[in-house]
Write a protein that binds this DNA or RNA. Structure first.
Lengths: 335, 335
DNA sequence: TTGTATGCGTTATCAG
DNA sequence: CTGATAACGCATACAA
């Protein structure tokens, strides 16, 4: 394997000079630059980033830890991260933590050991103190994270309460007052936010909160299917169901349809996320669009700023992205 | 940042000893081992894999290059790779090449420079000679790749012709003889395989091949929707449509439904891949299941074997995984 | 079993 | 502008 040493020898210049042309330093005589390039070709030189990393203490690698790549929400976000990363010359380690704290910890440890320049951690499960330790050792950006009161972390979130209000308002405009909710897993911060926003909406409209209208799923279509059936079996079933993600919403559609209900004539269904498949359900799903790709790019931009030390006092430490409603066919006027 | 040097000093042993306990060499006196561990805690030691990588020339990192993470086919495969990789202590760089040869080349170059121990390349677009160069520099496993006559590469494929035959047979059993096909992009090797298999099936059944029944999509649901409509507008429309992936199949369902056709009474539709969403279409999609996750784990196993030099003459260089049919609701007896 | 010295391929420092 | 030389943190021969 040819090294810059070989290049230097063949080019008849010194190590330092080769290194300089490699790093685009302009303090190299054009003639020498030429010679170096020729020599690189001649000896078949390949730059070794590992050596560079050891010396400079920067690897140009970052870690992205997501709950699950199988959940269609995350690939798009991951894509946003990757595209933005490539623009900055960064390569990303993609890691699934399966919503498992141990796995999350293990991946962080591995990434740290590999000397990543930074980590983007989505839906962090580690507790405050551990997160602080990570932040001590590398640049850290949190996504979909609960608020840290003390403003200690860099975080980018989507505006859950605004998104829920969007959906609930639209249901309200369509005359719905009996609105059920299929929440996500309640350990999750954003699930709590969404449920809170749901309750607050009800309050603001002087609608009564019915505990039996709130059920908790696990983001899978199967749970949506099962819970929707359960909801529709209530003595006084809802006229609309709001699911905390599209997978569950689509499952819910399937569930109520097998019971013989028509959507949206008999029951309205609204989702959250706007995954591609929500176009394809029958009827097409009305849902809250989350700016997934943008969340990814924003995460990376923020991380990049941290890495480059532009994260001074005045730098934005917190970004909250807005959602918006996508009106399709699954919501109708109340009967 | 504490190094093994610090640990050695604090533990009162030598550098080499610390290195030995780190690498699990059993030739360390228990007492010393203990002292080393204590010292590591005391000085807050963190292992630096970059340094190790420079020295040993192995990074424990690998690259996985896929066409698109947004296509629901790949996340599951990627997941298989990741899970198997973790078991081997490998971390994976995930890269999307967007079916763009330039991007593919760029990613490979970057990965090589980062010293990955191996690369899994899915649906390779680079030509033979370039691939050979890559193989010179690192371990390489190809997935979803066209056959290399000379048996020069390690490759894992799904059995396209067997999968197509599965689908066509099932259609045949249901009395269909007018079967249209929505293919993938014809630059792709597996698209060609599938089309070939389709033609051969027709031939074997003495059915005539009608060019107007074969249309070419781009894997998106929109193309499936458009092309299905086109197919149904033919003077003599087909009784069944076979789409080369589920996204197009589901799009096709949507398309024919908007034209007023009922599935499967008026038209049967069959897909390929068995992505999760195919459970959720209405009616549920009958499709060919591809062992996506297994393809991922098999790719990694093979790569791992290559890395460890077990890739001698007798080692399997080629694996072909079987598909199987998932019968749901979108195919019916011909009217 | 343990210690010492050397090198992995770069970058950085500092004379020249 | 260029060249020599010393790190970076670890692994490995080899000597003890």
């Amino acid at each position: 394997m040819a090294t810059i040493k070989d290049v230097a020898r063949v080019a008849g210049v010194s190590l330092g000079t080769v290194s300089n042309v490699l790093n685009g330093k302009n303090s190299v005589r054009p003639g020498n630059k030429r010679k170096v390039y020729d020599a690189m070709k001649e000896v078949g030189f390949h730059y070794n980033m590992t050596a560079s990393a050891l010396r400079t203490k920067t690897t140009k690698n970052i870690g992205l830890i997501i709950p699950s790549i199988t959940n269609p929400y995350y690939p798009e976000l991951a894509r946003g991260v990757e595209d933005a990363a490539r623009r900055e010359g960064l390569t990303v380690f993609l890691c699934n933590d399966d919503r498992d704290t141990e796995k999350e910890r293990a991946y962080i440890k591995a990434l740290l050991s590999k000397g990543v320049d930074g980590i983007i951690l989505l839906k962090p499960r580690l507790e405050h103190s551990e997160l602080l330790e990570v932040k001590e050792r590398t640049s850290l950006v949190l996504g979909d994270a609960s608020i840290d009161i003390r403003n200690e972390f860099h975080v980018v979130n989507a505006d859950d309460v605004q998104g829920v209000i969007c959906a609930m308002n639209f249901l309200g405009q369509n005359g719905h007052s009996q609105i059920a909710m299929i929440t996500g897993m309640m350990e999750s911060y954003s699930s709590q936010c969404r449920l809170d926003a749901y309750k607050r909406y009800l309050e603001s409209r002087k609608l009564c909160y019915r505990p039996e209208y709130v059920v908790s799923g696990n983001y899978s279509w199967k749970s949506g299917c099962r819970l929707a059936k359960q909801l529709m079996s209530l003595p006084d079933p809802p006229t609309a169901i709001f699911a905390a993600n599209d997978m569950m919403a689509i499952g819910a559609m399937k569930g109520v349809q097998t019971m013989g209900y028509r959507i949206p004539q008999d029951i309205s269904i609204i989702g959250y996320d706007d995954i591609e498949m929500s176009n394809l359900s029958n009827p097409a799903l009305t849902t809250v669009h989350q700016p997934k790709y943008n969340m990814g790019t924003e995460c990376l931009k923020m991380l990049h700023a941290c890495i480059n030390g532009k994260e001074s006092m005045d730098t934005t430490k917190r970004i909250t992205l807005e959602n918006h409603l996508i009106i399709r066919e699954s919501v109708g006027m109340v009967r």
